[in-house]
Amino acid sequence: MQTPHRLEVENISVAYGDKIVLQNVSFQVPHGVRIAIVGPNGAGKSTLFKALVGLLPLKTGKILIHGLPLGNHKDCVAYVPQREEVDWRFPVTVRDVVMMGRFNSNGWIARPTKADHQAVDQALEKLNIAALANSSISDLSGGQQQRVFLARALAQNPHILLMDEPFSGIDSTTQEITFGLLDHLRSRQVTVMISTHDLNLAANRFDLVMLINKGLVAFGSPHDVLSQGNLQKAFGNSLLVMDGGTLLVDECCPPDDEHLHMPISSSDQVK
């Protein structure tokens, strides 16, 4: 018997109010693979993630995880949002935030169990932030914030991990720690989907690439997907084709987006 796909998306359309952001998307993801999601701004990358975790209702189609509709798996999918989406001045410690990932393990009123504390400790160790456990999150650098979110996702013990732009505005140390974590997750058969603007990363360090622009443009191995024709379809006029090859001028981020000029503090380096 064939191993069932971990994640099956059948013809989904997602809209904010009347504005359709993603149309007729279908794909199947086998377990344990690492997928890069690539597309221009407003292509619907974040929307796809939010649909996958059940934050946005589906206009059409369905999402099956382990063959069951979304909502039947409490701890199955973890989502690492863009760092800017939470208030980093909220009065909690690093440990508090990572513990939030263990929230559902034993009912949401009960106090954390020994197993919860162990899972949190391990996650903190794995991301090299155990020393920061009792620090306030307001004292962290961008890369450290990223690692806190990763530790939280790890503590959730997910089967599928979704990460929204984890590589924008972080130092190379955090990037390598992230990939180290991804290798670890692969060994545990965790499926990882990451949206990124970095096409080099997408081409070189992922098993599969999904190119989207309001819908699915292409999905497959990096070599097949990142062809000139596909990129032209996804990026349109942002793509410059020259004699010697293809030059992609991705608009990347809105001009005043903070991660373009976010300073990376020296405290980011791992001791």
């Binding site: 989502y79 949002p81 939470v86 909220f90 939030m100 990932g101 559902n104 949401w108 009123i109």
Partner: peptide, 22 residues
């Protein structure tokens, strides 16, 4: 006191609260 943790998660990161199916 009873809802300390759910309220904390909901206030800090509503998206996480939703993905945890709170």
């Amino acid at each position: 006191v009873l809802l300390y943790r759910p309220f904390m998660v909901l206030s800090f990161d509503p998206v996480l609260a939703a993905t945890l199916r709170l």
